[in-house]
Design a protein around this nucleic acid. Structure first.
Lengths: 112, 112
DNA sequence: GCGGGTAGCTTGCCTGACAAGGTAGCTTGT
DNA sequence: ACAAGCTACCTTGTCAGGCAAGCTACCCGC
């Protein structure tokens, strides 16, 4: 479970960014993809939908439909309690992970 | 190749940690794996060797052999100029990436 | 009805992490 | 010398996930 944390972390960065965004307010898939692409977190929307399916299968997010004024129905995603817990867990782990990376890649004359 | 930066970043974290370690001093594979496993960056040595092969194929590291006082010859890895450049590039990108992640997953009442 | 924009989802390819196993050199015990 | 065991390197096979591309369907203006 120990080394698992790092592995889960590396793989879970984008997922956790989704959870983080959803913790502010519910968003629909298309909107999420534009935000994440804008931040350079994902390269295309093709990455997002399978991810959202996974998150929903894990019970971390739930969905509801809402009409749009111009276009088809939007499927909004919202954090579940489980997702909130997952996000908090990631927040704690991210700090130490980022510190480790910074420490390992940091210039060695930086810690003198 | 444009949105590549973020993708390369996420995938390149562990690779860059290897480069970072090698920027301090040359190390051999076994030693690298113990260090990285200790930091939770990789789960097993099976991850490292293919990675080192990739890094060498890309010309980011070079190798030389050195006798051990107890055991077979050790293959030491050392940064090339290209590897140093790559590492510096990562250092710059990592900061902004980490900030983005922190921003996206950070508690929303944290930036008030 | 048709075309274009919005939105959701799927398919297929490729890369990479990982566990497990295989090879080889050196040391120690008998 | 031979067996056992450690160190060190590398490969193979499996599985998950990122990504580009494509497909479906809804709504609007014409």
């Amino acid at each position: 479970m120990t080394a698992d944390a790092g592995a889960q972390l590396r793989k879970g960065v984008v997922e956790s960014c989704v959870l983080g965004l959803l913790s502010r307010e519910p968003m629909y898939g298309w909107q999420l993809s534009e935000t994440l692409i804008g931040h350079g977190m994902i390269a295309s929307i093709g990455t997002l939908y399978p991810m959202l399916s996974r998150l929903r299968a894990q019970g971390l997010v739930s969905t509801y439909d809402q009409q749009s004024d111009a276009g088809p129905v939007r499927k909004y995603y919202r954090l579940t309690d489980s997702g909130t817990r997952q996000l908090n867990s990631f927040r704690e782990q991210w700090g130490s992970f980022a510190r480790t990376v910074h420490d390992l890649v940091g210039k060695d004359d930086d810690h003198g």
